[in-house]
Simulated assay, not measured.
Amino acid sequence: MATLKHINSKNADYGAAEQYLLFEHDEFTMKPVLDETGRLIPREDYRLSTLNCGGEDFAVACMRANLRYGKNQRREDVKSHHYIISFDPRDGPDNGLTVDRAQALGEQFCKEHFPGHQALVCTHPDGHNHSGNIHVHIVINSLRIEEVPFLPYMDRPADTKAGCKHRCTNAALRYFKSEVMEMCHREGLYQIDLLNGSKNRVTDREYWAQKKGQAALDKQNAPMIAGGITPRQTKFETNKEKLRQTIRAALSAATSFENFSSLLLREGVAVKESRGRLSYLTPDRTKPITARKLGDDFDRAAVLAVLEQNAQRGVTVRSIPQPQPYAAKDADGVQRLVDIEQKMAEGKGKGYEHWAKIHNIKQMAKTLNVYQQYGFTSPEQLEAAFDTAYEEMRQTSG
């Protein structure tokens, strides 16, 4: 399942990109790893090549081109674009993918889609997560030094001219993803659909938050494990992952959108709909998280589809006669009021407070309905009826 990732860089030091590709770096801080003598540690295995650099070093060639055309001189200018093609770990043993073959594919991809750009192509045999996925880094100077043909992802004449800059638009990135899928299909490699999103959309920031949190949790649990104590928590979950689990739990029990919203409010999560899109506000945030950042399973269309399926299953279940040994409890019966102050003191958020207020109002209304249904007109009359019933019960029981 090859994936494509894009990063643009405003770093004017083109040598930093080459240094990252050639030497070991800390996966969290992205700083070079040094040995005992303070020297950089070369990576164990890699393939490296340059394109359109005229025999010069990549960094030197890029700086010469920038000076010649007077581009990339400001701090806010995007100096380079970094594309990463990561192949499935199974492609090695199953499909014969090697580092050399991946390097050749990366060079061909760069020549076809980034012509006229000075480029650095480097292949690593494994990622920082040690999953065995071969991946290719393609770093290009944002400046184009040669005039090129009009390619499918380009949308204006300047995209072909020398002295103009590469633009990675949404349409261009979508085109590159489709080309990666086509390349994998042609080469007989594993591939997933890169164009239609994913059920769980994990951003780069969330990925690293999970990695750092897991590392901190493992460090915290190490003394307990050494002492023979089983830690209560061994897997770190980000706030977004916890939100996904909360939403899925509510979806599994809801049959309507109102019911779904109510179940989420009980957990302190407020769901909002705006312009046909859903967003979720957790107690610890002031800005809601859009469904797009959580995954396709949490957008409006997917949520309504699940609710419709739940409603249909509910109708089917209710249509089957079931033996009732005793009278079922009325679903609309009066429930106890929620002590909001106590719950807030326990750490509940604004979302729970909002739900509790509505819950208490509904229960008070139901209490009044029951009160009037049995003909009571005052609290004294209710108390007298209670005392009478209690005396009758005592006399009956002897």
Rank of each mutant, 00 (worst) to 15 (best):
I84D: 04
V121L: 09
R64G: 01
P283V: 03
S274A: 15
P231V: 01
L4F: 03
F87R: 04
L194C: 02
K329L: 14
E391G: 00
F376L: 14
Q220W: 09
D339N: 09
T316W: 12
N8H: 11
I192F: 02
I84G: 07
V136A: 08
S256D: 13
F236E: 00
E76H: 11
Q118G: 11
T290N: 08
Y374G: 11
G132C: 05
C53N: 12
K211I: 06
N133R: 15
P157Q: 09
D100A: 11
I340P: 11
G268D: 01
A162E: 10
A119Y: 06
N170I: 05
D35E: 07
M364S: 12
R90K: 08
Q312A: 12
K161C: 02
L278A: 03
A216F: 06
Y83T: 12
L337F: 09
P379S: 09
L278N: 07
P93R: 04
C122T: 11
E27A: 13
T286G: 07
G227L: 08
R277W: 04
I85P: 01
I229P: 00
G276P: 15
A172T: 11
K240V: 05
G197V: 06
K111Y: 02
S378M: 06
T388H: 10
G398S: 14
G295Y: 08
Q372M: 10
D296G: 10
